[in-house]
């Protein structure tokens, strides 16, 4: 599995993601700068976390309109696997790859802590080494992770099993609708999530709960 990690100005989790991918899959990912007009030949693209363009206008709004995103969008329409983590989730949502929006945390606080995450769907390319209903620890670090969408979209996400990750009971750090922490698109090739699984994969992180997520990618 060949992968690429995209870096925009203001992104700060790209190294964590590059290291996590290499440590778990054994394959060195390609680092791609946002000004590239097209992607290298890869099976998976990860848009990592950070504060692209200083969160100006809206989180992820400017990065979502960059040249590399146009290519990611076109290739995602043809089945390229895409994962957006934290700011990456905001970016791919702003780009229209996933429905809804990430709003300011309901209590206005930036949250930086560990949460409990429930695997709601283990039939995705990023969760197939997990079991359905499994609860794992995962760090979050964001000020705008309050997932919201219109009622019709919510009905579809829930009805079609497209809520992949949910904050476990009592663990919702941001007021997200239905405790939604991560979703997948209709085609099943684009996943966005607020928590940072790349920071819970080796003993130095305290726990290795999220390692199986990355191991799921090997088969993908």
């Amino acid at each position: 599995m060949k992968s690429a990690v995209i870096t925009f100005p203001g992104i700060n989790r790209e190294r964590d993601m590059l290291m996590a991918l290499e440590a778990t899959t054994g394959v060195k990912p390609i680092s791609v700068w946002h000004t590239e007009a097209s992607l290298p030949n890869v099976d998976l693209v990860i848009v990592p976390g950070g504060f692209s363009y200083g969160d100006y206008l809206r989180c992820g709004a400017i990065a979502a309109r960059s040249p590399i995103m146009a290519d990611i969008k076109a290739k995602a329409m043809k089945g390229l696997k895409v994962i957006g983590v934290c700011n990456g989730f905001q970016i791919i949502t702003e780009a229209g790859l996933l429905p809804g929006v990430l709003m300011r945390n309901a209590d206005l606080h930036f949250v930086c802590r560990e949460v409990k995450l429930k695997i709601e769907n283990n039939q995705t390319f990023f969760t197939n080494k997990m079991t359905k209903g499994q609860i794992v620890s995962c760090p979050v670090a964001h000020g705008e992770g309050n997932y919201a969408c219109d009622g019709e979209t919510l009905k579809r996400l829930e009805g079609e099993g497209r809520v992949v990750f949910r904050y476990a009971e009592g663990s919702n750090p941001n007021g997200a609708t239905n405790d939604i922490a991560g979703i997948i698109n209709e085609r099943g090739n684009v996943i966005g999530m607020m928590p940072h699984p790349e920071n819970m994969i080796e003993p130095l992180h305290g726990k290795v709960d999220c390692r199986p997520l990355f191991e799921s990618l090997i088969a993908a």
Binding site: G100, V101, D150
Partner: peptide, 9 residues
């Protein structure tokens, strides 16, 4: 439509 507003919200 394309940038200044997010018409979802």
């Amino acid at each position: 439509e394309k940038l200044i507003a997010n018409t979802v919200i």
